[in-house]
Protein backbone atom coordinates (compact mmCIF):
# COMPACT_ATOMS: atom_id res chain seq x y z
CA UNK A 1 0.00 0.00 0.00
CA UNK A 2 1.30 3.47 -0.85
CA UNK A 3 2.04 6.02 1.85
CA UNK A 4 -0.68 8.50 2.70
CA UNK A 5 1.68 11.32 1.91
CA UNK A 6 5.12 11.70 0.39
CA UNK A 7 6.65 15.13 0.04
CA UNK A 8 10.09 15.62 -1.45
CA UNK A 9 11.97 18.88 -1.83
CA UNK A 10 8.86 21.02 -1.57
CA UNK A 11 9.60 24.67 -2.16
CA UNK A 12 7.02 27.43 -2.14
CA UNK A 13 7.73 31.07 -2.85
CA UNK A 14 5.27 33.95 -2.85
CA UNK A 15 5.51 37.05 -4.94
CA UNK A 16 6.40 40.14 -2.93
CA UNK A 17 7.06 43.36 -4.77
CA UNK A 18 9.36 42.53 -7.66
CA UNK A 19 10.77 39.23 -6.44
CA UNK A 20 9.72 36.05 -4.72
CA UNK A 21 10.04 35.33 -1.01
CA UNK A 22 10.71 31.70 -0.14
CA UNK A 23 8.21 30.54 2.46
CA UNK A 24 8.83 26.81 2.31
CA UNK A 25 12.42 25.90 1.54
CA UNK A 26 12.85 22.22 0.82
CA UNK A 27 10.51 20.12 2.92
CA UNK A 28 10.65 16.32 2.94
CA UNK A 29 7.93 14.34 4.67
CA UNK A 30 6.44 10.90 4.59
CA UNK A 31 3.38 9.77 6.45
CA UNK A 32 2.17 6.20 6.57
CA UNK A 33 -1.54 5.51 6.34
CA UNK A 34 -3.37 5.70 9.63
CA UNK A 35 -0.70 7.79 11.37
CA UNK A 36 -0.82 11.30 12.79
CA UNK A 37 1.90 13.81 11.99
CA UNK A 38 2.05 17.07 13.88
CA UNK A 39 3.62 19.90 11.92
CA UNK A 40 4.83 22.16 14.69
CA UNK A 41 6.00 25.72 14.30
CA UNK A 42 5.48 29.37 15.13
CA UNK A 43 3.75 31.88 12.92
CA UNK A 44 5.62 32.39 9.68
CA UNK A 45 7.44 29.06 9.90
CA UNK A 46 5.73 27.83 6.74
CA UNK A 47 3.67 25.09 8.35
CA UNK A 48 0.31 26.16 6.96
CA UNK A 49 1.73 26.82 3.51
CA UNK A 50 3.24 23.33 3.53
CA UNK A 51 -0.14 21.90 4.42
CA UNK A 52 -1.95 23.82 1.73
CA UNK A 53 0.60 22.79 -0.87
CA UNK A 54 -0.30 19.17 -0.27
CA UNK A 55 -3.53 19.62 -2.20
CA UNK A 56 -2.27 22.14 -4.70
CA UNK A 57 -3.85 25.20 -3.09
CA UNK A 58 -0.70 27.33 -3.02
CA UNK A 59 -0.02 26.92 -6.74
CA UNK A 60 -3.55 28.08 -7.46
CA UNK A 61 -2.89 31.25 -5.48
CA UNK A 62 -0.02 32.11 -7.78
CA UNK A 63 2.81 30.90 -5.58
CA UNK A 64 5.84 29.36 -7.22
CA UNK A 65 5.86 25.70 -6.18
CA UNK A 66 8.58 23.14 -6.82
CA UNK A 67 9.22 19.62 -5.61
CA UNK A 68 7.09 16.53 -5.56
CA UNK A 69 3.94 15.93 -3.54
CA UNK A 70 2.29 12.53 -3.69
CA UNK A 71 -0.98 12.04 -1.89
CA UNK A 72 -2.10 8.39 -1.71
CA UNK A 73 0.32 7.62 -4.52
CA UNK A 74 -0.99 10.35 -6.84
CA UNK A 75 1.18 13.17 -8.08
CA UNK A 76 -0.61 16.36 -6.98
CA UNK A 77 1.28 19.05 -8.97
CA UNK A 78 0.69 17.02 -12.14
CA UNK A 79 -3.08 16.98 -11.71
CA UNK A 80 -5.51 19.21 -13.54
CA UNK A 81 -7.44 21.75 -11.49
CA UNK A 82 -10.50 19.55 -11.79
CA UNK A 83 -8.64 16.47 -10.51
CA UNK A 84 -7.28 18.47 -7.59
CA UNK A 85 -10.77 19.62 -6.74
CA UNK A 86 -11.91 16.03 -6.76
CA UNK A 87 -8.97 15.01 -4.60
CA UNK A 88 -9.88 17.64 -2.03
CA UNK A 89 -13.49 16.68 -2.11
CA UNK A 90 -13.34 12.95 -1.76
CA UNK A 91 -9.88 11.71 -0.77
CA UNK A 92 -8.52 14.46 1.44
CA UNK A 93 -10.52 16.11 4.20
CA UNK A 94 -9.78 19.63 5.48
CA UNK A 95 -10.34 21.14 8.91
CA UNK A 96 -9.48 24.79 9.51
CA UNK A 97 -8.96 26.96 12.54
CA UNK A 98 -12.00 29.05 11.76
CA UNK A 99 -14.94 26.86 10.76
CA UNK A 100 -16.83 29.80 9.30
CA UNK A 101 -14.37 29.82 6.40
CA UNK A 102 -15.45 26.31 5.45
CA UNK A 103 -19.14 26.40 6.32
CA UNK A 104 -21.48 28.37 4.10
CA UNK A 105 -23.50 30.69 6.35
CA UNK A 106 -26.64 30.59 4.21
CA UNK A 107 -27.18 26.84 4.09
CA UNK A 108 -28.23 24.46 6.86
CA UNK A 109 -25.33 22.39 8.17
CA UNK A 110 -27.02 19.07 7.38
CA UNK A 111 -27.66 20.11 3.77
CA UNK A 112 -24.02 21.08 3.36
CA UNK A 113 -22.90 17.60 4.39
CA UNK A 114 -25.50 15.95 2.19
CA UNK A 115 -24.36 18.03 -0.76
CA UNK A 116 -20.77 16.84 -0.38
CA UNK A 117 -21.99 13.26 -0.49
CA UNK A 118 -24.25 13.84 -3.45
CA UNK A 119 -21.47 15.47 -5.41
CA UNK A 120 -18.57 13.20 -4.57
CA UNK A 121 -20.22 9.90 -3.72
CA UNK A 122 -23.18 9.97 -6.08
CA UNK A 123 -25.56 9.54 -3.17
CA UNK A 124 -29.20 10.56 -3.40
CA UNK A 125 -30.30 13.52 -1.31
CA UNK A 126 -32.11 11.26 1.17
CA UNK A 127 -29.06 9.03 1.55
CA UNK A 128 -26.92 12.11 2.03
CA UNK A 129 -29.15 13.42 4.79
CA UNK A 130 -29.24 10.04 6.53
CA UNK A 131 -25.47 9.85 6.36
CA UNK A 132 -25.20 13.40 7.70
CA UNK A 133 -27.24 12.28 10.67
CA UNK A 134 -24.87 9.35 11.24
CA UNK A 135 -21.88 11.67 10.94
CA UNK A 136 -23.31 14.05 13.54
CA UNK A 137 -23.65 11.10 15.89
CA UNK A 138 -20.08 10.13 15.06
CA UNK A 139 -18.72 13.56 16.00
CA UNK A 140 -20.89 13.48 19.10
CA UNK A 141 -23.12 16.42 18.42
CA UNK A 142 -25.99 16.19 20.90
CA UNK A 143 -29.55 16.56 19.57
CA UNK A 144 -28.22 15.76 16.10
CA UNK A 145 -31.55 15.84 14.26
CA UNK A 146 -32.22 19.38 15.42
CA UNK A 147 -28.62 20.59 14.88
CA UNK A 148 -28.61 19.31 11.27
CA UNK A 149 -31.29 21.87 10.51
CA UNK A 150 -29.32 24.71 12.10
CA UNK A 151 -27.40 27.36 10.23
CA UNK A 152 -23.67 27.60 11.07
CA UNK A 153 -24.13 30.85 12.99
CA UNK A 154 -26.62 29.14 15.29
CA UNK A 155 -24.00 26.69 16.53
CA UNK A 156 -21.49 27.33 19.30
CA UNK A 157 -17.78 27.34 18.47
CA UNK A 158 -17.25 23.77 19.60
CA UNK A 159 -20.27 22.45 17.71
CA UNK A 160 -19.26 24.32 14.59
CA UNK A 161 -15.83 22.73 14.71
CA UNK A 162 -17.45 19.30 15.14
CA UNK A 163 -19.71 20.01 12.17
CA UNK A 164 -16.68 20.88 10.08
CA UNK A 165 -15.00 17.63 11.10
CA UNK A 166 -18.18 15.82 10.07
CA UNK A 167 -18.01 17.45 6.61
CA UNK A 168 -14.30 16.66 6.32
CA UNK A 169 -14.95 13.02 7.16
CA UNK A 170 -18.12 12.68 5.09
CA UNK A 171 -16.41 10.81 2.27
CA UNK A 172 -14.21 8.81 4.65
CA UNK A 173 -11.01 10.27 3.24
CA UNK A 174 -7.81 8.31 3.89
CA UNK A 175 -6.02 11.61 4.62
CA UNK A 176 -7.17 14.49 6.79
CA UNK A 177 -5.38 17.86 6.80
CA UNK A 178 -6.01 19.92 9.91
CA UNK A 179 -4.80 23.51 10.29
CA UNK A 180 -4.86 24.58 13.95
CA UNK A 181 -8.38 23.19 14.31
CA UNK A 182 -8.56 23.68 18.07
CA UNK A 183 -6.61 26.89 18.51
CA UNK A 184 -9.57 29.27 18.57
CA UNK A 185 -11.50 27.16 21.06
CA UNK A 186 -11.73 27.49 24.82
CA UNK A 187 -9.57 25.12 26.82
CA UNK A 188 -12.38 22.85 27.99
CA UNK A 189 -13.78 22.69 24.46
CA UNK A 190 -10.39 22.35 22.80
CA UNK A 191 -9.64 19.11 24.60
CA UNK A 192 -13.04 17.70 23.62
CA UNK A 193 -12.46 18.39 19.93
CA UNK A 194 -8.87 17.19 20.09
CA UNK A 195 -9.77 13.90 21.71
CA UNK A 196 -12.68 13.48 19.32
CA UNK A 197 -10.28 13.83 16.40
CA UNK A 198 -7.88 11.38 18.03
CA UNK A 199 -10.62 8.80 18.58
CA UNK A 200 -12.09 9.17 15.09
CA UNK A 201 -8.65 8.92 13.55
CA UNK A 202 -8.08 5.60 15.32
CA UNK A 203 -11.56 4.34 14.58
CA UNK A 204 -11.48 5.20 10.86
CA UNK A 205 -7.77 4.66 10.28
CA UNK A 206 -7.38 8.12 8.80
CA UNK A 207 -3.91 9.57 8.32
CA UNK A 208 -3.76 13.10 9.70
CA UNK A 209 -1.42 16.02 9.20
CA UNK A 210 -2.08 18.33 12.11
CA UNK A 211 -0.62 21.82 11.97
CA UNK A 212 -0.22 23.43 15.36
CA UNK A 213 1.92 25.86 17.33
CA UNK A 214 1.05 24.17 20.61
CA UNK A 215 3.46 21.54 21.90
CA UNK A 216 0.83 20.16 24.27
CA UNK A 217 -1.66 19.64 21.47
CA UNK A 218 1.01 17.87 19.42
CA UNK A 219 1.89 15.63 22.37
CA UNK A 220 -1.76 14.77 22.81
CA UNK A 221 -2.47 13.58 19.28
CA UNK A 222 0.68 12.97 17.23
CA UNK A 223 2.54 9.76 16.42
CA UNK A 224 5.19 11.77 14.65
CA UNK A 225 6.29 15.37 15.02
CA UNK A 226 8.06 17.61 12.53
CA UNK A 227 9.30 20.98 13.79
CA UNK A 228 9.45 23.80 11.26
CA UNK A 229 11.54 26.96 11.44
CA UNK A 230 11.93 29.57 8.71
CA UNK A 231 10.50 27.31 6.01
CA UNK A 232 12.45 24.18 6.82
CA UNK A 233 11.86 21.11 8.91
CA UNK A 234 14.61 21.33 11.50
CA UNK A 235 13.71 18.18 13.39
CA UNK A 236 11.46 15.19 12.92
CA UNK A 237 10.88 11.90 14.57
CA UNK A 238 8.37 10.14 16.78
CA UNK A 239 6.49 12.28 19.29
CA UNK A 240 8.51 10.75 22.12
CA UNK A 241 11.80 11.37 20.34
CA UNK A 242 11.12 14.97 19.51
CA UNK A 243 9.27 16.06 22.63
CA UNK A 244 11.13 14.06 25.26
CA UNK A 245 14.64 14.07 23.79
CA UNK A 246 14.76 17.04 21.44
CA UNK A 247 17.88 17.12 19.28
CA UNK A 248 17.62 20.57 17.70
CA UNK A 249 18.37 23.64 19.82
CA UNK A 250 15.19 25.31 18.51
CA UNK A 251 12.99 22.46 19.69
CA UNK A 252 14.74 22.60 23.03
CA UNK A 253 14.16 26.32 23.24
CA UNK A 254 10.46 25.86 22.47
CA UNK A 255 10.20 23.32 25.26
CA UNK A 256 12.00 25.76 27.53
CA UNK A 257 9.17 28.23 26.91
CA UNK A 258 6.59 25.82 28.32
CA UNK A 259 5.31 26.98 31.68
CA UNK A 260 5.94 24.43 34.40
CA UNK A 261 5.26 26.54 37.47
CA UNK A 262 5.38 30.07 38.81
CA UNK A 263 8.02 32.60 37.75
CA UNK A 264 9.83 32.24 41.06
CA UNK A 265 10.35 28.50 41.11
CA UNK A 266 10.45 27.71 37.38
CA UNK A 267 11.57 30.75 35.37
CA UNK A 268 11.04 30.43 31.63
CA UNK A 269 14.14 30.06 29.53
CA UNK A 270 13.81 32.86 27.04
CA UNK A 271 14.51 32.43 23.38
CA UNK A 272 15.93 35.80 22.41
CA UNK A 273 15.07 37.62 19.21
CA UNK A 274 12.39 36.75 16.71
CA UNK A 275 12.21 34.53 13.61
CA UNK A 276 14.18 35.86 10.61
CA UNK A 277 12.69 37.85 7.77
CA UNK A 278 12.27 35.26 5.01
CA UNK A 279 13.20 37.83 2.38
CA UNK A 280 16.55 38.43 4.09
CA UNK A 281 17.65 35.15 5.59
CA UNK A 282 20.93 35.04 7.48
CA UNK A 283 23.71 32.96 5.92
CA UNK A 284 24.15 29.43 7.18
CA UNK A 285 21.63 27.98 9.61
CA UNK A 286 18.57 30.27 9.87
CA UNK A 287 18.38 29.65 13.59
CA UNK A 288 22.05 30.44 14.27
CA UNK A 289 21.50 34.11 15.27
CA UNK A 290 19.17 33.02 18.10
CA UNK A 291 20.92 29.78 18.99
CA UNK A 292 22.78 29.44 22.27
CA UNK A 293 24.93 26.61 20.93
CA UNK A 294 25.97 28.22 17.65
CA UNK A 295 29.62 27.84 16.72
CA UNK A 296 31.94 28.25 13.70
CA UNK A 297 30.11 26.60 10.79
CA UNK A 298 26.59 27.63 11.88
CA UNK A 299 26.86 31.10 10.40
CA UNK A 300 28.47 29.83 7.20
CA UNK A 301 26.85 26.67 5.86
CA UNK A 302 23.37 25.31 6.13
CA UNK A 303 23.38 22.07 8.08
CA UNK A 304 22.16 18.98 6.26
CA UNK A 305 19.62 16.68 7.83
CA UNK A 306 21.35 14.09 10.00
CA UNK A 307 19.52 10.90 10.90
CA UNK A 308 19.96 8.61 13.84
CA UNK A 309 19.47 4.90 13.36
CA UNK A 310 16.20 5.30 15.24
CA UNK A 311 14.86 7.55 12.50
CA UNK A 312 15.10 10.71 14.59
CA UNK A 313 16.40 13.45 12.30
CA UNK A 314 17.64 16.98 12.83
CA UNK A 315 19.23 19.74 10.76
CA UNK A 316 22.02 20.90 13.03
CA UNK A 317 25.79 21.12 12.94
CA UNK A 318 26.02 19.91 16.53
CA UNK A 319 26.83 16.23 16.65
CA UNK A 320 23.81 14.21 17.76
CA UNK A 321 24.14 11.66 20.49
CA UNK A 322 23.62 8.23 18.99
CA UNK A 323 20.73 7.18 21.15
CA UNK A 324 17.56 8.99 22.06
CA UNK A 325 18.04 9.23 25.77
CA UNK A 326 19.75 12.55 25.24
CA UNK A 327 19.78 14.78 28.27
CA UNK A 328 16.13 14.19 29.06
CA UNK A 329 15.89 17.95 28.97
CA UNK A 330 12.19 18.25 28.49
CA UNK A 331 8.88 16.79 29.33
CA UNK A 332 9.90 13.92 31.55
CA UNK A 333 9.60 15.76 34.80
CA UNK A 334 6.68 17.99 34.01
CA UNK A 335 4.74 19.25 36.95
CA UNK A 336 1.70 20.10 34.92
CA UNK A 337 -1.41 20.68 36.93
CA UNK A 338 -3.72 17.83 36.35
Amino acid sequence: MTAALEVNGLEVAYRAGRGFVPVVRGVDLTLARGKVLALLGESGSGKSVTLRSMVGLTAREGARVAGSVRVLGQDVPGMTARQQLDLRGSQVGFVFQEPMTALDPVFRVGDQIAEVLVRHRGATWAEGLARARALFDLVQIPAAAQRLRAYPSELSGGLRQRAMIAIALACEPPLLLADEPTTALDATVQIQVLLLLRDLQKQLGTAVVFVTHDLGVAAEIADEVAVMYAGRIVERGSAEQVLLAPAHPYTRALLGCVVRGGYAEAPLVELAGSPPDLARLPPGCSFAPRCGSAFGPCGVTEPAEVARPSGHRARCHLPLPLDDRGDGHAGAETTEAR
Binding site: A187, V189, I191, L215, E220, G331, T334
Partner: peptide, 25 residues
Protein backbone atom coordinates in the same frame (compact mmCIF):
# COMPACT_ATOMS: atom_id res chain seq x y z
CA UNK B 1 -10.58 21.10 38.22
CA UNK B 2 -11.97 20.58 34.72
CA UNK B 3 -10.12 23.63 33.42
CA UNK B 4 -6.85 22.42 34.90
CA UNK B 5 -7.36 18.90 33.61
CA UNK B 6 -8.09 20.17 30.09
CA UNK B 7 -4.56 21.50 29.62
CA UNK B 8 -2.49 19.03 27.60
CA UNK B 9 1.00 18.31 28.90
CA UNK B 10 3.95 18.24 26.53
CA UNK B 11 4.66 14.63 27.44
CA UNK B 12 3.22 12.23 24.86
CA UNK B 13 3.26 9.46 27.46
CA UNK B 14 0.84 11.33 29.67
CA UNK B 15 -2.10 11.85 27.42
CA UNK B 16 -5.53 12.85 28.61
CA UNK B 17 -7.84 9.83 28.41
CA UNK B 18 -11.19 11.59 28.22
CA UNK B 19 -12.36 15.20 28.21
CA UNK B 20 -12.95 16.38 31.79
CA UNK B 21 -16.24 18.06 30.86
CA UNK B 22 -18.54 18.06 27.86
CA UNK B 23 -20.20 20.85 25.94
CA UNK B 24 -19.50 24.54 25.40
CA UNK B 25 -19.92 27.28 27.99
Amino acid sequence: RALFASKPSVDPRRRIAAPPIQGDP
